[in-house]
């Protein structure tokens, strides 16, 4: 049985037996290369659920606002976000039923648009690992694996780290090479070069906050950017205001970011947002040996103190 059918079966069971009030998953509304989040409450609607490499949203983002009991379709990175949310007391374990999906990576459609020289994709059909895309003046067969999101290419947790039901067998670990290639390049560049890179990518930001809203771990009741008394950061698109926003947001994810890439994929203007969070995740791993969201009751590295914590940075 394919994973999608199995997923639908599990969802039906959960709703029919009233074990959950809602199943949060993905559906296909016909837009090429995309799925859209759906909220299913009627067992008769479970056939709307789909599972394919276009299931790119991190649905853990919808859990914090809920008071009911929800089942959620979650990839490896999404389950890590759920673990962080539980550890940070934002959701109760008993209120979330995790339909864990081993994930071979999701497609970054911006890479496909790029490959097609911004060609207008009007139709996309997925068969096995081949996506046949059609526009008005072109047809192309593309391999899913050639267009995976960057975060998927360095993914070390393809299988759910926590779930109630796992849909499908565990995938073997990915042979990750050069996980920090881009970060190392930045680290090795001069501060002028780095500044130029930050300035260039962040100047495209329009302060729409899609990155913040797509992030499952940006759940603050009031974001620092929305406070006006005192105002911590200016609201304009002046580069200094924009940089303050992105750096502060990235710092807030220290030791918490699960590198799901939702921030970057949500950006309408192609800002390289993940560069900041990935650098911080690298530092946390090197300094504290910690990766976020791998086990329950794990303390986040910045939330406690050990005598042997590295302190070389104190000068």
């Amino acid at each position: 049985m394919d994973l999608q059918t199995k997923l639908r079966q599990e969802a039906r069971k959960l709703l029919e037996e009233k074990l959950v009030d809602v199943v949060i998953g993905y559906e296909d509304e016909g837009a090429p290369l995309r799925t859209t989040p759906c909220f299913i409450t009627d067992p008769q609607d479970v056939d709307r659920l789909v599972w394919n490499p276009f299931c790119d949203h991190n649905l853990a983002r919808y859990l914090t606002a809920r008071k009911d009991k929800a089942a959620v379709v979650a990839k490896g990175c999404d389950t890590r976000a759920i673990v962080v949310l539980i550890n940070e007391n934002q959701i109760e374990r008993k209120n979330v039923n995790i339909l864990g999906m081993p994930c071979g990576g999701i497609v970054d459609r911006k890479k496909i648009y790029n490959h097609l020289k911004n060609g207008d994709v009007r139709e996309a059909v997925l068969k096995d690992k081949v996506i046949t895309v059609k526009g008005l003046e072109f047809t192309a067969d593309l391999m899913v694996d050639d267009f995976l999101a960057d975060c998927c290419l360095s993914c070390r947790h393809r299988n759910p780290v926590l779930c109630d039901v796992q849909i499908g067998e565990n995938l073997p670990p990915l042979d990750v090479k050069d996980e920090y290639k881009k970060i190392k390049q930045l680290e090795e560049s001069t501060s002028e070069e780095r500044w130029e890179y930050f300035r260039k990518t962040l100047s495209k930001c329009i302060r729409c906050y899609a990155c913040r809203e797509a992030c499952p771990l940006c759940y603050c009741q009031q974001c620092f950017t929305d406070q006006n008394f005192p105002a911590w950061v200016g609201k304009t698109t002046d580069i200094s205001d924009t940089i303050v926003f992105h750096i502060m947001r990235a710092f807030h994810t220290t030791g918490r970011c699960v590198d799901c890439g939702a921030c970057e994929r949500s950006c309408p203007n192609n800002v390289d947002i993940r560069m900041l969070t990935k650098k911080i995740a690298k530092d946390v791993k090197e300094l504290f040996g910690d990766e976020a969201g791998l086990q329950l009751e794990e303390k986040a590295p910045l939330s406690f103190y050990n005598e042997d914590d590295p302190q070389d940075f104190i000068k």
């Binding site: 909220f39 919808y62 899609a210």
Partner: peptide
Amino acid sequence: HQKCLGCGI
């Protein structure tokens, strides 16, 4: 509105 993130795009 359920799936809307509430961003400004």
